[in-house]
Design a binder for these strands. Structure first.
Length: 413
RNA sequence: GCCCGGUUGGGGUAGCCUGGCAUCCUGUGGGACUGUGGAUCCCUAGACUCGAGUUCAAAUCUCGGACCGGGCCCCA
């Protein structure tokens, strides 16, 4: 027996139906906001990802040399490919360019609950428009998707990368030191962070002020603690989200994200039902285009962890509609089989989901099977009715049965 | 990559400590029942994660690998 590779999954039909159903809801919501779908290759040049995330990501991705000697990687995320696509081919589209995508990504990590080596991401990018109104639009989309798929409990946390960066640099930290300090602050490792800030030459007052802001979480009032553009920006975003009816929004100035390409607002969404691994969405405003050889362009985007979001829905008791089939055709005798094919062909060409007995089962076994596949109607093709040009149509739920003319059978559906 | 726990028919399980015919439920196929389902009964098929070791004998004990899960690292 061949096992599937570590961290991958097979999906049963009922799971696939659920996944497709939820994908469809996500796409619908994105379309409602005027975002349009794109798709990029499953593999890319490795350089795309090292440019974005640094050389160390190679340890975490499926990177290999192809037969032509090219350095190739299975994509570990979708923002970099989307921005590459933009720089290569879409840079003269009207702004803002609003795109979304859904697809699988691959990371060489240790799998855990809700974490796989092949996983699915839904994401959206708004390119070429900066400002609170754009950020708010993108966050609204992410939140609206969660609402549309029926996730009951989720939280939105919004921060601003500029707040801590500005405090750090105005307190005397050099550009080299800042990313590492932010990384420690993001993980709430305050002792480590303090040590780094101290060795970067910051005063004790500055350090405690910075840690205080990092811990600042709450409603819009907490913005009183800070000054300047970030404050204005976040207030406006908060206000716009209020118009959409999203009250589950917190300001969390400790949401920092260590990477350089974030330029302002950053946000995360959590599903508390997931416990420790609760983050289901992350995003922010950034600029990557110049890294990929384009003009500097401000964008805002997010990625939703599709698998983890589904896990959250499951934990909340979400149920997908049960699989149903409209018609199940039962030939009573072998002589009636040919007639059954004709009826099946007729029903299917009219868009009615139809199955027929392929196992040569007895009438009573066929009824059992029809029940087990959740067939709504059974069509019994028997000699007696057929002699009159008719078949029996049985409602599998009520048990009511009537004789109808074969050429009027569509009226039963 | 590191530490810890787990893995028994398709799904769910008992047995493991204390080595000796692998249990039960459900599901699959068939029959009772060749013109009427969901019930019941019967039959059939179907598993010890893999490899090595110890032993007369290994699902059971030992070691190693794979996979799953909890924690660490990472989480773009």
């Amino acid at each position: 027996m061949i096992q599937k590779p570590r961290g991958t999954r097979d999906f049963r039909s009922d799971e696939m139906e659920k996944r497709r159903y939820l994908e469809k809801l996500m796409r619908e919501e994105a379309a409602l906001f005027g975002f349009r779908e794109i798709a990029t290759p499953i593999f890319e040049n490795t350089e795309l990802f090292t440019l974005k995330s640094g050389p160390n990501v190679i340890d975490e991705i499926y990177a290999f040399t192809d037969k032509g000697g090219r350095e190739i990687s299975l994509r570990p995320e979708l923002t970099a490919p989307a921005m590459r696509f933009f720089v290569n081919e879409l840079s003269s589209e009207p702004r803002p360019l609003k795109m979304f995508y859904f697809g699988q990504c691959f990371r060489y990590e240790r799998p855990q609950s809700g974490r796989y080596r092949e996983f699915f991401q839904f994401g959206a990018e708004m390119i070429g428009s900066a400002g609170p109104q754009s950020d708010a639009e993108v966050i609204s989309l992410a939140a609206s998707i969660m609402k549309h798929i029926g996730l009951k409990d989720y939280r939105i946390r919004i921060g601003h990368i500029g707040v801590l960066r500005e405090m750090l640099s105005s307190s005397g930290a050099s550009a080299d030191n800042i990313p590492l300090i932010l990384q420690k602050l993001d993980k709430k490792e305050y002792e480590e962070a303090s040590q780094r800030m101290k060795s970067a030459g910051l005063s004790d007052e500055s350090i405690s002020a910075i840690i205080d802001v990092t811990e600042t979480v709450g409603s819009v009032e907490v913005l009183e603690k800070i000054e300047g553009d970030a404050k204005e920006h976040l207030s406006k975003v908060f206000q716009i989200l209020g118009y959409y009816g999203f009250n589950n929004v917190e300001i969390d100035l400790g949401v920092v994200r260590g990477l350089d390409y974030y330029t302002g607002l950053v946000f995360e969404m959590d599903a508390p039902v997931l416990g420790a691994e609760k983050q289901i969405c992350g995003g922010g405003s950034y600029s990557l285009t110049e890294l990929f050889g384009g003009e500097k362009t401000f964008s805002t985007g997010f990625g939703i962890g599709f698998d983890r979001t589904l896990l959250a829905l499951d934990r909340e008791g979400f149920e997908t509609p049960k699989y149903e089939i409209s018609a199940y055709i039962i030939p009573v005798t072998d002589a009636m089989k040919d007639e059954s094919y004709k009826i099946a062909a007729n029903l299917r060409s009219s868009g009615i989901t139809t199955e027929l007995d392929l196992m040569g089962r007895s009438l009573s076994k066929n009824f059992k099977y029809a029940s087990s596949i959740n067939a709504k109607k059974a069509i019994i093709v028997g000699e007696k009715e057929f002699a009159e040009g008719c078949v029996s149509v049985r409602d599998m739920q009520s048990g009511e049965q009537k004789v109808v003319k074969i050429n009027e059978i569509l009226q039963e559906f």
